[in-house]
Amino acid sequence: MLSVKGLKAKVGDKDILKGLDLEVGPGEVHAIMGPNGSGKSTFAHVLSGREGYEVTAGSVDFNGQDLLGLEPEERAQLGLFLAFQYPVELPGVNNTYFLKSAVNAIRKARGDDELDAVSFLRLMKERLKVLHLNDSLLKRPVNFGFSGGEKKRNEIFQMAMLEPKLAILDETDSGLDIDALRIVAAGVNALRGPERSMLVVTHYQRLLDYIKPDYVHVLAQGRIIRSGGKELALELEEKGYSWITDGEAA
């Protein structure tokens, strides 16, 4: 469903991604791990179409579509979802109104009817229940004044509402204590399914204790230098990144 070939990207004059290849099949969960500055977040941002990155080579195919030529909203409408490392605060924009606009924009793009207020509310309540969240977040402006944990939970809730085909979790564990992490991970696991792939971008192995990946990739200096099963993550935890990156250099 996602096929990344020879992807190169730079920020300003600096090359960040230097030929990245990745294949993700339907329903698979892939973890992308790597030291700071390896290009993990850049990769997530390039996939979601954030400005400020220049793709200089390579291709990204998403269910037969060339992702790189699309606007961010078009990517979202195709079923791509980025859970932000730092979710943006939108003062004055009501969370429910925001979600309804997003859900309907995506439904419309897919050729489904837009949901009226009643069915939307019903859907929202149902998803809240699945994720064991309460509805206090819904009345507030999007992420505004939310704690770190609330923001991350809100991201997962949006994911539940928007039903993406590919969810990218960018450092979702950062800034969370262990309890918050557990709640967020439980939410993510509840959303796993045969039609939904996930890319879990993380620096630390601990998130993978809760979200078990099918594949683990190590990203260093802009390329994937090692791929394996979940045991790779454990090995990394034990030996550190230098175990692989040094080998690479040698």
């Binding site: 179409g49 961010p72 909203e73 980025l82 939108l90 606009s101 997003a102 995506i106």
Partner: peptide, 11 residues
């Protein structure tokens, strides 16, 4: 903020 909204499918 614009990007965040657009990444959720909003034009």
């Amino acid at each position: 903020m614009l990007f965040y909204l657009r990444s959720r499918g909003i034009s």
